[in-house]
Design a protein around this nucleic acid. Sequence first.
DNA 1: CATGAATGAGTTTTCATTCAT
DNA 2: AATGAATGAAAACTCATTCAT
Lengths: 194, 194, 194, 194
Amino acid sequence: MPRTPQENERIRQLAKKNILEAGMKLFINKGYHATSISNIAEQAGISKGLLYNYFKGKEEILATMVETRVGEIMDVMNQAKEIESPVEQLKHIIEGAIDNVFENPEVFRFYLHLQTQPEADHELIKYSRFLIRENARQFEFQCEIFEKLGAMEARKRSLYFSSTLQGIMLMISTYPDKFPIEEIKKQIVDEFCH
Amino acid sequence: MPRTPQENERIRQLAKKNILEAGMKLFINKGYHATSISNIAEQAGISKGLLYNYFKGKEEILATMVETRVGEIMDVMNQAKEIESPVEQLKHIIEGAIDNVFENPEVFRFYLHLQTQPEADHELIKYSRFLIRENARQFEFQCEIFEKLGAMEARKRSLYFSSTLQGIMLMISTYPDKFPIEEIKKQIVDEFCH
Amino acid sequence: MPRTPQENERIRQLAKKNILEAGMKLFINKGYHATSISNIAEQAGISKGLLYNYFKGKEEILATMVETRVGEIMDVMNQAKEIESPVEQLKHIIEGAIDNVFENPEVFRFYLHLQTQPEADHELIKYSRFLIRENARQFEFQCEIFEKLGAMEARKRSLYFSSTLQGIMLMISTYPDKFPIEEIKKQIVDEFCH
Amino acid sequence: MPRTPQENERIRQLAKKNILEAGMKLFINKGYHATSISNIAEQAGISKGLLYNYFKGKEEILATMVETRVGEIMDVMNQAKEIESPVEQLKHIIEGAIDNVFENPEVFRFYLHLQTQPEADHELIKYSRFLIRENARQFEFQCEIFEKLGAMEARKRSLYFSSTLQGIMLMISTYPDKFPIEEIKKQIVDEFCH
DNA sequence: CATGAATGAGTTTTCATTCAT
DNA sequence: AATGAATGAAAACTCATTCAT
């Protein structure tokens, strides 16, 4: 009795998820270039040949990871859009961003690494650009919040806010052990949320 | 007649400098892993064999670059130490850091990329750690400034300051075209230098 | 449909055997250092890449050859142990050793060449030591035979016997054409087997 | 005041001797293939360029070494020829050979290694052949001694004698520490010198 | 769907040898 | 006579990708 097409598709998705998780683990741990297709197949517990059945190559695995990442960021932004008060919106963004980095500093570190990819790495630069573009969209949204807050020169204030928040995330991912996140959250909230 | 040792030493220094410049250019442009020894030799206009006469391999070229970089950072810090007023010290650090990134955003980007290297890249992680350790030393020095400024909880205030400054540098290196550096400098100075 | 694991294992064994034979032929003919991985792959009729699928490198090919060789020597020794009379044991050892060298003088020559490897050739000295250790075990066994024969100072007599036998093997491998092996066998048997 | 041609030649000979000694030391220790021209120049305390002033290359250094070696062997043979009694001639050969190996086992080992060079190592096989040819001449001389001793089938007896002596030398060079040379000398003298 | 044997291009590295000084 | 910078060919080794089964 053959499987239904739906069932087949479900199995396919599970297999892809397995590969993606193996890839993520290795990319984060060893880096993209240092991870070979063989490594990923081994980590996923499948053969190299089968891996090519699901992904065109190493790059497509990364592409899928980046898309997922960007989706998650957009989800947080969309949640924030549901909130009425601009002050609460900002707090939600701050909390979401800082907690997320604190829980998985190595994930943030990986995407920051990807984002700072050299311009001429033709294989990876598109993902760097994709992440940067997404950051810019975030920034636009934050601009609107600062406008609603009635800030003079909302754009510049928002730029300064983004810098501060990005800086905190960078510091947490670099020194996750020693970082007093609650104290720092308090300082950024005090400075910007009023 | 053989060349004098001095003459040879001069040739060696010139050749090393040439190789380092070629390496820097390519590392910044294509990235460390994507740059081959052949690339560097070609860019430097010499043979592969000669390159090995001067550097044990690609890694030693990077090591030399990182040491030079850390030396430059320490120079700025030492300059700041010469200044009496803590407010002026902070301003000097802010100016120095932001102007430096603005003038060579791709250099900062390269070292940030290196700093966010995955933990298990055995070849590069030592340079990542070296840069992070140097950052920590910077931070300790800034702590002292905030203590002199009489800040309550100087350590936390300094941490927040470092985050903001790092964030600005990250943003400049990501969007060098659109960044109103003077405006942003004004905001960070207003916030911390009083 | 994938091949069965058994089928794959069979292919692997055949391929390994093929590579080992190619390697042996070239090592014996050109020597270890003068033989490149490319040479071996070409001789075996496969690509360089595939060769690395089966052996970590040139050294592992040699290691496998040496292990096989030592196994063969041990087999002869174990056969001799089955024999009752010490005189017949000695004769069996003499016959086995001399006939073996006479049939494949270049193989003996190769292993003697390996055995005389300089001490500081870090890559090869372990195989030299391995062969020498195996020779020493042979010697211990021969000592026992001379004890059973009731020789005074069996150890020294056995040492002299070993020297003579080794010397004959060396001479055969050096002048295989002209060597009257039966006459020489007679002389060594007359001297030691009574 | 320019040097006399004789003086120049003397200096040249000293320089060559220095290089040869450096080469010998390294060849014996690391082996011919593992020793580079740079190594030899460094060991001799001169530059690579100067080395080429004295020798065409690595091979010529080896060639000179081998010639010297063969000369030494011939000297011993010629000394023996001066002796009247064939028994004393044999004893002299035995003593000379065994003592020489015992004093410098690694030198004998090196030349045996060279002598067992694979046939197709075009660079080295000629030295192997040269050493073997010299051995053959030795053998011819020993034949004469056995004839004078009145041995039946002097040729075969001499072959057996050569084998024994070569075997002892091989054993000494392999186990120099444990070898009771006087006892072994006694055995070979007892067997052949009467 | 699934395997892993097989390929070959690309990379790092070494070294004998040349040559300007 | 003397130096060591410079070259280039050849070696070991890696890995993404293909394909017969």
